[in-house]
Amino acid sequence: MVSGGREFFSKRYEQLGGLLADVKLPQTVRVNTLKITAKELLARLGEQGVVLKRVPFTRDGYWVEESKFSLGATTEFLLGYYSLQESAAQLPVEVLDPRPGELVLDCCASPGGKTTQLSARMEGRGTIVSFELKEHRLPGLLMNLERCGVENSVVFAGDVSQVKSWKLEFDRVLLDAPCSGNYLSEPGWLEKRTLDGIERSAAIQKRLLKSAVSVLKSGGVLVYSTCSLEPEEDELNIQWVLDNLPVRLEKVSLSVGDPALTQVFGKKLSPDIALCRRLWPHKTNTEGFFIAKLVKL
């Protein structure tokens, strides 16, 4: 049986109530409020002919409607006044809602878009303990922290599971898990991905979820997100968490996306999983995304 390719995924998404549709994603920037206000940045970029439109479902995101040059090489970018960050990718930190002064764990930090966003939400106060396992992804992360003026992050090279021995209890944990991605995230994705690969990702994610929950304080919040549309990495993993770890789900309050699936390929899941959010690109004009908010018992 073929377990990859356009036809396979197209049928699969139809079974899940979705659609495999080619969507052209708008470029999105996020204002770095550690360094500048949105008003100031919009005025500066506006003088250079850049037209930005606020993303209604994010706090600091703007779609780029017009620009005659690359926004990844301006003085304002190099000074860290904004980051290029897809609109759906801005949502996990918004849902986590970290506060100034808290101790936050960022499990898989590269390339640092969400780490710099965490710092901005925390107004640079408190501590973000960040981990990145893949050495080749570290330079990009460190560059973004430096560029954006993040001063409350401590980055470790290695697997997040090592933090268990440090006797730290985190107020909040962000697990934006490594995943198989989605068909908009990479050219040729549909041909490269298989069900086996997706299941391997799901196994890694379960291990990361277990580590993340173990260092979360009682009453602390864990946001789990992926940019995958595959239920093995999303709803089915959350069902596994509910069955095996001391957590409960809390509603992901977003004005974008659908309630997550409570029935997957004929298998009934906990009705609570509808509290999570699933973003289908053809509905949201964003990347595919899944977000769950868990509270430790």
Binding site: L141, L142, L145, S153, V154, V155, F156, A157
Partner: peptide, 8 residues
Amino acid sequence: MPVYINEC
């Protein structure tokens, strides 16, 4: 043994 800590 961090690789980055606080203010660079």
